[in-house]
Design a protein around this nucleic acid. Structure first.
Lengths: 252, 252
DNA sequence: CGCATCATTGAAGCCCTTCAAGACTTGTGG
DNA sequence: CCACAAGTCTTGAAGGGCTTCAATGATGCG
């Protein structure tokens, strides 16, 4: 048992909220593998560039983002991570040297050694499917982002907010508060901070966001979805189709 | 044998060029499964919206694109397809109802029934890996596109051209001619046709593209790569890492 | 308190879009 | 063989969305 008794329950609740389809059997096989690591402060890197770890990282608390540094010195945020998300699960598919994962708030993280994860997902098909859906979900989010990329700033920001609301909903956080700064949104939407600020103010004027400064809180979700032309279906983990077995036994 | 004798050789050469890592054994198991279908004229749909086919489509000749229709009536091109590409392989992962595949030039296509493909990739690991890499490649292309999305029109167009050159190279076409119209490029880059035209003219002035109108031909590939800040590594099929087996046996 | 970070505001300007029209190329039919 | 149509490419002009620069508030923290 690499696990302290105390963090167990917190860990369990995070994982249970995230992977609803897992049964007790899978959970009791998976949870003991997670080693709770130290906290990472806001601004710190959870997974660095050129990472060569032999384990996967799971976000237990806080908000993080996967990003890349671009020419002009700014960062481009690819995806956000919430509690229960694997931060670098795709290191099984490829390990991008030029991407890193940063903590956008104070984060607590856990790690799962590769070989132990390998063993347990070989044994439990549901676990395998759950992890697989994680990988597919990130690809879908990025795909959707590309399609939204050419719309107006308002629609892009609205879309980002909708995505965050939907993902927070999925893990049981329904306050409407988006735990991101305007800078984070700018880096994700590829807009200037100045323009993000003006867009946010427009949304506040429309009554979509809370008028209070210093926090981004969605007040009128329906209106936001309308502005964003947001269709949440792409976020919902669809059950793998029967043909799924086509991909079984992938091995080099 | 669903296959006429004549198209066999053409088919074989296309598939061999594309999947270089396949051995004779895999090829002779896979090629007979491909049924050559009729040609699709430029502008026609190869895979329609809400497609529910029980087979995968493989592009044997011509150029095609996967696209989505957006609000303003325009289309957003997600990826281009070249001979040897599967057009809808991701229908094993998910089948997006709002996306279709269109022929950008006259295309010839083949189909492979799902259950036959399932049988043969269960039997041949190399085939499984090859198809898997196809799916991963598309995801990577889209990911890269997202990162390029906030750059200048010149860099975006240059990037698109680099991607096409690299992919054409990979199947043995090294003339430097991009088989796309400026309209296609505009739909892929999410730029207006007018601005694409002006950007192309700039590239012609720089000597990067052929001066002759009516065709887009890359003359100075190095310069183009430089303008695009293009790193072709993301297109190269990396051998799956050892941990790959983590994903083995995925099944619902 | 002083410092750091984030939020806000104004002004100037560029990149790209939209509209509109004309030129060129290709294919089709009389 | 020419006329016409359709599609693509090209060009000009006007305008808007967003960026950059720069400076000032606002908030929280050691």
């Amino acid at each position: 048992m690499h696990l302290l008794r105390r963090p167990w329950t917190a860990l369990a609740s995070v994982v249970v909220r995230k992977f609803k389809e897992l049964g007790d059997e899978e959970l009791s096989a998976f949870l003991p593998l997670v080693q709770v690591k130290e906290r990472v402060e806001r601004g710190g890197d959870i997974v660095g560039f050129n990472s060569t770890t032999k384990y996967s990282t799971i976000l237990l608390g806080g908000v993080a983002c996967r990003y890349r540094l671009i020419e002009n010195g700014r960062r481009q945020i690819l995806t956000f991570h919430y509690p229960g998300d694997f931060c670098d699960l795709n290191h099984y598919v490829r390990r991008p040297e030029d991407e890193a994962v940063a903590a956008l708030g104070d984060c607590s993280i856990g790690i799962v050694p590769d070989e132990q994860l390998a063993r347990v997902i070989t044994q439990y098909p549901k676990l395998r499917t759950a992890l697989w859906q994680e990988i597919v979900l990130e690809a879908r989010i990025i795909r959707e982002r590309l399609l939204v990329g050419n719309r107006s700033a308002q629609s892009r920001i609205a879309n980002l907010l909708c995505e965050q609301i939907a993902r927070l909903d999925a893990i049981g956080t329904t306050t409407g508060v988006i735990p991101l700064t305007q800078i984070d949104l700018a880096d994700a939407a590829a807009l200037s901070v100045v323009h993000v600020n003006r867009t946010i103010q427009d949304l506040r004027e429309l009554g979509v966001l809370s008028k209070s400064s210093r926090v981004i809180q969605v007040m009128d979700k329906d209106r936001l979805v309308e502005l964003a032309q947001f269709d949440s279906r792409y976020l919902q983990p669809q059950a793998p189709p029967p043909q799924w077995e086509l991909l079984s036994g992938i091995r080099s």
